[in-house]
Design a protein around this nucleic acid. Structure first.
Lengths: 106, 106
DNA sequence: TATATTTGCAACCATATAGTTGCGCAACTA
DNA sequence: TAGTTGCGCAACTATATGGTTGCAAATATA
């Protein structure tokens, strides 16, 4: 039942919601308009994102505005950190290949 | 059946496998030893990671070595890119707050 | 006050997922 | 050649997941 950030961003709809909210806060109805499924289905996705603190809510009368929590998004980046060196090394190796090609041209 | 990278990294076991392989190539048996579930269960996870090209295989006799594909890992980083500005702005705002505190101290 | 709008919550359903066991095949080894 | 080892594939199972419909609470509007 309890989901983590990685499970939260596994769903394409939820990723799309996050992208939507990166532009600014929105109400559930406004978000749901962007998708084919029902408001309740979208609302469930929002609830999951809120559970993981990827989005936060702010009440305004009977409307509820949901907005992104970039700090939590950053946690995904933190996990990726341990792999960054690897793909940077890969680039370095590519540089080396390109360098060798240049050497060969001489 | 066809899964994308985000669904692949949603599972904790699969994330652990990726971390394991970041240290170097391993055989399915060697990987499975690090987990409580059966070899076949772990093998399924490896297969999913291979399907998404997050890992690649190299046969050596009857053994198969799986290794990380950092280039594919980078695709997750690419998606995160669109949010990075947001949490950087957040830091800038924090900087501003700290700056204001300093100003107040004067 | 009566009515409409915005939202959350609960029950239910079909399918996807992660796990298991069992089996077969290829490749080392005695 | 016979036996062992490493691995993938298939069938099956329990549970998680994403979707639906229906309803109730709270706020806005006539």
């Amino acid at each position: 039942m309890k989901r983590d950030i990685f499970q939260a961003i596994a769903d394409p709809t939820r990723r799309a919601i996050l992208v939507l909210l990166s532009a600014g806060a929105m109400t559930p109805n406004a978000i749901a308009e962007h998708f084919d499924s029902t408001r309740q289905a979208v609302s469930k996705h929002i609830h999951i994102l809120a559970e993981c603190e990827l989005v936060q809510q702010r009440k305004a009368g009977r409307e509820i505005y949901y907005h992104l929590n970039p700090g939590k998004m950053q946690e995904i980046d933190k996990w990726l950190e341990q792999f960054k060196k690897l793909w940077q090394d890969r680039f370095n190796q590519l540089d080396q290949v390109l360098l060798n090609i240049s050497e060969d041209e001489k």
